[in-house]
């Protein structure tokens, strides 16, 4: 089985990396925060969106990558998206890219409802964002700006018009997250896919959410490690950069090693989603490892930044707090590890 990216997929990824480096820089990420952003009196006015980056992603074809060609997309598979999710994590892109471009399209594409097809076309051209939630009263990231909600219960996928939905805003440690609880009552009129018609698509949506948030965590971890390597090369103690001390090097090496092992798991899960095989265990392996290694990376990077790392003004917070939130979203380390453990015991 080969799950390394093709040459074309690697080119897609580097195009996205260049786009996000320009359009989603640190200033844009900080501006997207709605909570505490700097001095204790400063509260960000951001809505969790970086519009310029989103438009660039639409023009490039990222948003329509997994949308069927018949609906105006490129009709590609999940293995083409996983590297892009890593780059979105690396850039700290706060927008609901994973949900809109990678979780929702395959579910909507498996629906026979005309509305699903219409939303797919609007996703591809960057007109709408989709917030994704699981369960009866889901907590959804980017809830305040989402145009549509795709809510997956055990038995069906529901598509809700966000303008008609009742949302209770919730606070998050990540100020760009704009979490909200969607209050709604399941109703047959909002069903786009039911487990009777396509149980595979519903299961795949859960696995895609875990897989691509794992990929984003890998990118976030890489970013934190890069920032910290730069910092320990500049910060001097006892007349030398602190990065020259073995204790510092080993901490960073441990953090980097964890991320290196987590990344292929996400690529493997994306490959299984692409070929239509059951990715449940692979996605859980990816999400549990990525969550764990991002936790290690966060702790190490915070520690090595010393006191300055504890200040909200420091850029490390933008990535560290995203990692904290993302590592618990769509199933945390323990939940996914339990899935893997059960699968092992059953074999």
């Amino acid at each position: 089985m080969r799950f390394a990216p093709t040459e074309e997929q690697a080119e897609f990824r580097s195009a996205v990396k260049a786009l996000l480096a320009d359009t989603c820089d640190i200033v844009a990420v900080r501006a997207s925060w709605g909570g505490e952003v700097g001095r204790h009196t400063d509260v960000g006015q951001g809505n969790g969106r970086v519009e310029r980056a989103w438009k660039g992603l639409a023009d490039m074809g990222v948003l329509g990558l997994l949308v069927p060609e018949a609906d105006g997309g490129m009709g590609m598979t999940q293995d083409a998206f996983v590297g892009i999710a890593v780059e979105a994590g690396y850039a700290g892109l706060p927008d609901p890219l994973i949900e809109t471009a990678a979780v929702a399209p395959p579910v909507l594409a498996s629906s026979s409802e005309p509305l699903a097809s219409e939303i797919l076309a609007r996703i591809a051209c960057g007109e709408v964002t989709v917030g994704v939630g699981f369960g009866e009263s889901p907590i959804v990231p980017c809830a305040s700006t989402a145009d549509w909600f795709l809510i997956l219960t055990g038995s069906a996928a529901h598509l809700l018009d966000a303008s008609a939905a009742d949302i209770t805003p919730l606070s998050s440690v990540d100020g760009a997250r704009h979490l909200g609880r969607v209050n709604w009552n399941a109703d047959d009129s909002t069903v786009v896919v039911s487990s009777d018609s396509d149980a595979v698509a519903l299961a795949a949506a859960r696995n895609a959410a875990a897989t691509f948030s794992a990929a984003a965590l890998v990118g976030l971890s890489h970013r934190m490690i890069d920032m910290t390597v730069e910092y320990v090369g500049e910060r001097r103690q006892f007349g030398v950069p602190i990065g020259s001390f073995q204790a510092v090097k080993h901490e960073l090496a441990d953090a980097a090693l964890g991320v290196e092992f987590a990344e292929p798991l996400a690529f493997n899960a994306a490959h299984l989603l692409s070929v239509g095989e059951d990715a449940t265990v692979a996605a859980s392996m990816a999400k549990s490892r990525a969550s764990r290694s991002s936790q290690v990376a966060s702790d190490v990077c915070l520690q090595l930044h010393g006191a300055i790392g504890y200040t909200v003004e420091h850029d490390l917070h933008l990535f560290m707090k995203r990692a904290w939130a993302l590592s618990r979203q769509y199933g945390d380390f323990r939940t996914h590890r339990a899935v893997v453990r059960r699968a092992l015991l059953e074999d």
């Binding site: 074309e8 897609f12 195009a15 023009d59 490039m60 074809g61 990222v62 990558l65 490129m74």
Partner: peptide
């Protein structure tokens, strides 16, 4: 401009 995915594929 950034190359679009369609542009990257067509370039080959």
């Amino acid at each position: 401009r950034y190359p679009s995915f369609k542009g990257i594929m067509a370039a080959k």
